[in-house]
Amino acid sequence: MGKKNLVMNNPLRVLGLEKKVQEKGAGMGLVMASAGLGKTAILVQIALDSMLWGDKVLHVSIGEGFDKTRAWYDDILALMAVGEKSESFHSTVAEIMPNRMIMTFKEAGFNQAKLEERLDDLVQQNIYKPVCLIIDGYDFSAGNHADLEEFKEFMVRHGLKMIWFSATTHRDDDRRSAAGVPAPCHEIDDLFDVVLLIAPKDEAVNLKIIKCNNCAVDPGTSLTLDPSTMLIQKG
């Protein structure tokens, strides 16, 4: 199996974004959901797609342990392996794993300056130069517009194609931006090029495209996720 075919139902591919990411980068993306609804699962699928393209991914996990973050990748890969030829699947996985690095921080210990310091350590010593950054667990309720703008500049300084964030929504907070981006990101939605919202509906879970500049699908479209695996349902 060719590695490009490994994740046919990856969110980026379904949105038609992966070519744009590869060509010139796609800016900042955001995956939103209530706690426990599978934001990390979506971020990991996005990361895996980048890794398959040969792009180096830095997965920054805030408030989660290293083993737990790695377990997300192992679990999603195990789900993808179902029905695949084990030999070639494993060799593809072994081939792409050098494209992933995990960095974990405590909630209180994380800020953009510290991340930059760590990234500089890696880049200056020629150890690892990521082009895709995943930031899972960033506290948007504590951040403001200026903080997020810093990340935009950071992205340019480090030649990143994309930064993907996750944000937790709260059921009792119904504030929304004009574009429909829920709190706590309703006042900073202009900074994001893509905003996805995981929303349960009856027995299924939908991945709603709230905002997507240059996507192949229109905002308002929903993708259906398999609730047991959080993978986009085939077909």
Partner: peptide
């Protein structure tokens, strides 16, 4: 010393899987 530790691993053909920063100390895997 995180930078020096990572550098020493890199010089040894090591593949850094991740780093875990907790307060004043770091674990590099």
């Amino acid at each position: 010393f995180q930078g020096s530790i990572m550098g020493s691993i890199n010089q040894r053909r090591g593949m850094i899987i991740g780093t875990m920063e907790e307060g004043n100390y770091t674990v590099v895997e």
